[in-house]
Computed example of a mutant assay.
Amino acid sequence: MSGERTCPSCAGRMQSRALERHVGGLIELDLCFDCHAIWFDQYESGQLAPGAVIEIFRLIHENQDKPARPLADRLNCLHCREKLVFTNDMQRSNKISYYRCAQGHGRFTTFVQFLREKNFVRTLSAPEIQELKATVKQVRCSSCGAAVDLSRDAACAHCRSPVAILDAEAVKRALADLDAKSRGRMNPDAARAAEVMVPARIAQAEAKARRFEHRPVGGLPGVLMTTYNEDANILDLVAQGIDALFD
C-alpha cells in the first residue's frame, strides 16, 4: 500500500493502522474515524489475526464518543473510483451489510457492521426486546444513531436496522481464541511459560463480564452493560457495552 487514501464517503484523509495477519506479517487497514468506517482490500477482513480484531475493537472504543458522520449517497472505491454497491450478507447467524467494489477491489464497512461480522454484536430476539422494553423506553440505533421507541418499534424507523447489543459471551470467546492462537505461534519454551499466564488472563476477562452480567438491563443475560438509569435520555446498548468492557 502506498500514498494517502481518502475516505470513500467524506473524502477526508483515512488513518492507516498496521495490524497482525493470522498467517504472519502485517495488514495495513484504512480507517475513517469521522465516518466510523473501515476500508478492507479484498480478503483482508478474513485474514485478521485475533489480536488485530481486538485492536480494532479498542480503536472503536477510543473513537466512539464522536458522532458518526452520515454516509454519502455515493461511495467510491479507493482503487478504481467506481461506485460501491450496497450489499447484504450473512456471517454465521448475523445479518451484515457493507459497500463493495463490483471489480473486487475491496469493501467499505461501518464499525458496527464490523462488530456484527465478528459476532461481537448481535440482534436482540423478540422475547429479549419484550424484556428490555419493560424497563427501557428508548435505545439508540447502533447503525444510524436515531432513537428507537421500544414501545412502538423493534427496529429503527429511520434505517430499519434491528436493535442490537454487545454480546459478552462472544467477547469472551474472542479473547480466549486470541490467547490460544497466540500461544500456537510461540516457540515451545515460551508456550510453556504462557500456560500459567493465559488462563489467568481469560479468567480476568470472564470475571469482568460477570461483573456486568449481575446487573443486566431488562433481565438480559450474557450482556456487557453498565447500570441503567431510567432518567437517562437514550440508552446506547452497543456503546455502553464497549465502555463496560474497557473500564
Rank of each mutant, 00 (worst) to 15 (best):
A102C: 08
A102K: 11
Q103L: 10
Q103S: 15
Q103F: 02
G106K: 07
F108Y: 14
T109A: 12
T109R: 09
T110E: 15
T110L: 10
F111D: 15
V112E: 13
F114D: 15
R116K: 11
K118D: 10
N119Y: 02
F120K: 01
V121F: 04
V121R: 01
L124A: 07
S125F: 00
A126F: 03
A126R: 06
P127L: 09
E128I: 02
I129F: 01
I129Q: 11
Q130N: 08
Q130M: 05
Q130P: 03
A134Q: 14
A134V: 05
V136R: 05
V136T: 12
V136P: 00
Q138S: 11
Q138K: 07
R140S: 13
R140G: 10
R140L: 08
C141Y: 03
S142G: 14
S143Q: 08
S143W: 00
C144M: 01
G145M: 05
G145L: 03
A146E: 08
A146S: 10
A146D: 06
V148E: 03
D149S: 09
L150Q: 02
R152T: 14
D153Y: 07
A154P: 01
A155E: 15
A155I: 06
A155W: 06
C156P: 03
A157S: 14
R160E: 10
R160A: 12
S161E: 12
V163K: 02
V163I: 10
A164Q: 14
A164H: 11
L166E: 07
L166P: 00
D167E: 14
E169W: 02
A170L: 03
A170Q: 07
V171W: 04
R173T: 07
R173F: 07
A174G: 04
A174L: 12
A174D: 06
L175N: 01
A176G: 13
A176P: 06
A176N: 11
L178W: 07
L178A: 12
L178N: 09
L178H: 11
D179C: 09
A180F: 05
K181M: 04
S182W: 11
S182V: 12
S182A: 15
R185L: 14
R185S: 15
R185T: 12
N187D: 15
N187M: 08
N187G: 12
P188D: 07
A190F: 03
R192H: 05
R192G: 05
A193S: 10
A193Y: 03
A194S: 15
E195F: 01
M197G: 10
M197Q: 14
V198P: 00
I202Y: 02
I202P: 01
A203W: 00
A203D: 12
A207P: 04
K208P: 01
K208W: 05
R210W: 01
R210S: 08
R211L: 10
